Simulated scan of single mutants.
Amino acid sequence: MTARTILVTGASGVVGSALLRVLDAQGHRVIALVHHKPVEVESARGDITRPWLGLDPRDYRDLAARVDVVVHCAASVNFGAAPKTLHGLNVAGVGKVLRFVSDARARLVHASSAYVRHADDETVALGAYASSKRQGEILVRESGLPAATARISTVIGDSVTGHIARLQAFHHILGAAMAGLIPFVPREPGMRADLVPADLVAEALAAMATTELTDGMYWITAGEAAVTFDRIIDIAFAVAVQRHRADDTQPNLYVEALKPRIVTPDTYRQVIAMVRANANPDIGLGRLADLDRLIGAQQSARYFPTSLGVLPGSPPPPTESAIEKALIATCRYLASFPKEYWNGR
């Protein structure tokens, strides 16, 4: 395999940090573009929302002269972020990265979102987020540069350790539910969540970066291995019971009593209206908004397609059993946080 110099933006994030490990293990020369948090490979401190990627012009030119491939992972993945923030990172930021790719005469792997499919659906609460990601995809497609796009679904922790570089909305919701802070979860019968472990996403992106893909759309998703919401709740609370088994102040029956009840969306809306009216301090309104967006993102009965196993060099598509094992690992990682941590959302 020919070694390449690969620039990874968003290198300290959930996907970027996992990708650094994979690329380093494969022997590629890796440079990380970071904004705040340091990483353990060669890095440059920059900002994709600023000219020259926030670098000194001389440093920018030196970096462009070295880079063969850019894997663009930096983005706002906050479904509830302000439209201005989403546009600055997910649209204008993509434009500045494309300029760098052009200056470097490099190839681009653009990390997008599977939830782009909701960009035109005004009934889904994450429409602004999905729209910003779609606009970023359009910029990539119309740039004329050699570029391939990865549509990624909800990322959970490492398949084995469950570790997550940065907690995102799904992790906060799951952790709060395990701590007994979310009493109800709405879902239609059979509703599933498409979850992919961070290391699986990283392996697929590495395959895209190290093969000569110059165009196309690739789905990094669980596909038909998506897990039902009922199963997610069962797994989370099996882990919660294990976590508290040795704690005499929280016996198993107490922990099991905190398990969220699955209700219909109509019942959920009535309950939430009551909760909002009473401003219950134990159920953060921000957490409820995150849950609304998460449910909205997963509301379609259709599976996402998946390119895993078809994409050259990528891992095979996951089985439902493999996704469940990764979810167990993620829940164990989240269970290591004290209950007080989840009260802050």
Results as ranks from 00 to 15, higher is better:
residue 102 S to N: 15
residue 161 T to R: 04
residue 57 P to S: 03
residue 167 L to R: 09
residue 308 L to I: 09
residue 317 P to W: 15
residue 134 R to W: 11
residue 308 L to M: 13
residue 131 S to D: 14
residue 113 S to F: 08
residue 99 R to F: 02
residue 31 I to Q: 03
residue 276 R to T: 09
residue 37 K to C: 09
residue 296 G to E: 01
residue 46 G to S: 04
residue 137 E to G: 07
residue 196 V to D: 08
residue 181 L to Q: 12
residue 322 A to V: 11
residue 323 I to M: 02
residue 246 A to P: 00
residue 307 S to I: 04
residue 26 Q to E: 15
residue 308 L to R: 11
residue 234 D to P: 07
residue 10 G to Y: 12
residue 41 V to G: 08
residue 90 N to W: 04
residue 258 L to M: 15
residue 157 G to Y: 10
residue 169 A to Y: 00
residue 107 R to L: 02
residue 38 P to N: 14
residue 313 G to F: 08
residue 23 L to P: 03
residue 306 T to G: 09
residue 229 F to I: 15
residue 61 R to I: 06
residue 60 Y to K: 04
residue 35 H to C: 07
residue 140 V to I: 04
residue 332 R to A: 12
residue 129 Y to A: 01
residue 200 L to A: 14
residue 176 A to T: 06
residue 171 H to D: 08
residue 146 P to M: 04
residue 247 D to G: 00
residue 217 M to F: 12
residue 66 R to S: 01
residue 225 A to M: 08
residue 335 A to G: 10
residue 211 T to G: 08
residue 310 V to F: 11
residue 156 I to G: 02
residue 245 R to E: 00
residue 2 T to H: 07
residue 83 P to E: 12
residue 340 E to R: 10
residue 187 R to H: 14
residue 67 V to C: 00
residue 82 A to W: 05
residue 139 L to C: 01
residue 165 A to K: 04
residue 281 P to N: 02
residue 83 P to G: 05
residue 273 A to S: 13
residue 322 A to H: 13
residue 236 A to T: 05
residue 112 S to R: 02
residue 62 D to K: 12
residue 159 S to Y: 03
residue 193 A to M: 14
residue 234 D to W: 04
residue 206 A to G: 10
residue 133 K to R: 04
residue 49 T to G: 05
residue 307 S to W: 06
residue 192 R to V: 00
residue 262 I to Y: 01
residue 327 L to D: 12
residue 314 S to V: 07
residue 269 R to L: 14
residue 13 G to M: 04
residue 19 L to S: 01
residue 271 V to F: 05
residue 316 P to M: 14
residue 85 T to K: 11
residue 69 V to F: 02
residue 261 R to F: 06
residue 52 W to S: 12
residue 21 R to V: 13
residue 219 W to A: 11
residue 37 K to H: 10
residue 20 L to R: 07
residue 309 G to R: 11
residue 198 A to N: 14
residue 144 G to H: 08
residue 125 A to K: 07
residue 322 A to W: 09
residue 115 Y to N: 01
residue 133 K to L: 01
residue 205 L to Q: 03
residue 72 H to D: 11
residue 196 V to P: 13
residue 37 K to M: 14
residue 20 L to H: 10
residue 130 A to P: 01
residue 328 I to R: 14
residue 85 T to E: 15
residue 222 A to G: 15
residue 247 D to A: 06
residue 55 L to R: 11
residue 110 H to D: 11
residue 169 A to E: 10
residue 87 H to N: 14
residue 14 V to M: 15
residue 214 T to V: 07
residue 344 G to H: 15
residue 331 C to H: 00
residue 329 A to K: 03
residue 91 V to M: 09
residue 293 R to C: 00
residue 5 T to D: 06
residue 14 V to A: 11
residue 319 T to K: 06
residue 320 E to T: 13
residue 287 R to F: 02
residue 168 Q to L: 14
residue 335 A to H: 02
residue 261 R to M: 11
residue 304 F to I: 02
residue 271 V to E: 13
residue 43 S to M: 10
residue 311 L to V: 09
residue 275 V to E: 05
residue 69 V to R: 03
residue 25 A to N: 14
residue 192 R to M: 11
residue 314 S to A: 13
residue 77 V to L: 11
residue 226 A to K: 07
residue 269 R to C: 06
